[in-house]
């Protein structure tokens, strides 16, 4: 018995080593690219080509950030490695924030109202309607995107914040589904007591359901914000105008306009780093919530 036990332990010792090595490898593969992006954003133009593998360039500079934020005038920017395009990621970051925060607030609010109706209220065709909501999760995004573009164009909302926000502003099937699942699991005692006391639906929703769902709503808000912040194709289609571009669209256009032979890597990596900051901030603040929501909802 003790023999087999020590054999098992020996084996686990070796296995453990291998497992830890694999874990370290995974961390390296995950994190190294981000380090490299940041490192490149600090590398002066000439050193990008002469010190391509240095862990840190011999000279470091923040000018790429100044350049892509439009803080440095054009002639000087070209000298520093710019291609002469006018870039102002500061404005694009602001646009991304406006769109993402707007969508997050309204989508979570209206979806929670719908989820309340689906989870708690009785009305005709309830199950059918809910099934219809959920079934659209299966449709590839482009099927709706083409007609939605036409619709937004007909409403004269091209190149407006509202146009970019419109399709996800009032709901997404996922948001309603997510909150309904959560509400189904809440104890009904409190609301039933409130109903018996003669409270109306509005009071029950605001004063009982919302506080009980605050956690789930916060999680959904984080997911919605990240999805909207990351979105590329839709804002590209409806918001190409320079003043309205979100950060992902601006980064994409910046990349496409970059000259073939001499890409502005420093500028691109500075822009990429800026685009990561909000996500990393959210991860630091709400990391546990995000991580746990993946176990809970299973998707998205």
């Amino acid at each position: 018995m003790s023999n087999s036990n020590s054999a098992l332990n020996k084996k686990t010792g070796l296995t453990k080593g291998i497992l830890w090595a694999l874990t370290a490898l995974l961390l390296f593969v995950t994190l190294f690219p981000f380090f490299w992006v940041f490192r490149t954003s600090l590398t002066p133009k000439s050193l990008i080509f002469t010190e391509p593998t240095a862990i840190m360039p011999s000279v470091r500079t923040w000018t790429h950030y100044g350049r892509v934020l439009g803080l440095i005038d054009r002639a000087r920017a070209i000298e520093l490695g710019g291609t002469g395009q006018s870039v102002n990621f500061g404005l694009n970051i602001l646009n991304s924030f406006i769109v993402s925060i707007g969508v997050t607030i309204f989508q979570v609010l209206f979806s929670s109202m719908a989820a309340f109706a689906f989870a708690r209220l009785k009305f005709r065709f309830r199950e059918m309607l809910f099934a219809l909501y959920v079934s659209t999760l299966m449709i590839p995004s482009i099927v709706m995107m083409l007609p939605n573009f036409v619709f937004v164009k007909d409403l004269h909302l091209l190149n407006t914040y509202l146009g970019i926000m419109a399709p996800t502003l009032l709901m997404t099937p996922f948001a309603v589904f997510f909150l309904r699942q959560f509400m189904l699991g809440i104890n009904r005692e409190l609301e039933e007591a409130a109903f018996l006391d003669g409270a109306g639906l509005g009071v029950v929703f605001w004063e009982i359901i919302i506080p009980l769902c605050a956690n789930a709503m916060m999680t959904l808000a984080v997911i919605t914000f990240i999805n909207t912040w990351n979105d590329y194709m839709w804002p590209l289609i409806v918001g190409k105008k320079e003043e309205i571009r979100t950060l992902t669209v601006a980064l994409g256009i910046f990349r496409l306009q970059t000259p073939q032979g001499q890409p502005d890597w420093g500028g691109m990596m500075a822009g990429a780093t800026l685009a990561m900051v909000p996500t990393l901030g959210i991860l630091i603040l709400f990391g546990r919530r995000i991580v746990n929501s993946i176990g809970f909802s299973g998707f998205r």
């Binding site: 995974l26 994190l31 980064l251 685009a275 991860l283």
Partner: peptide
């Protein structure tokens, strides 16, 4: 949280 980072960032 760390291994989730690539998925949380914009595709672009």
């Amino acid at each position: 949280g760390i291994i989730l980072i690539p998925w949380l960032l914009p595709n672009v």
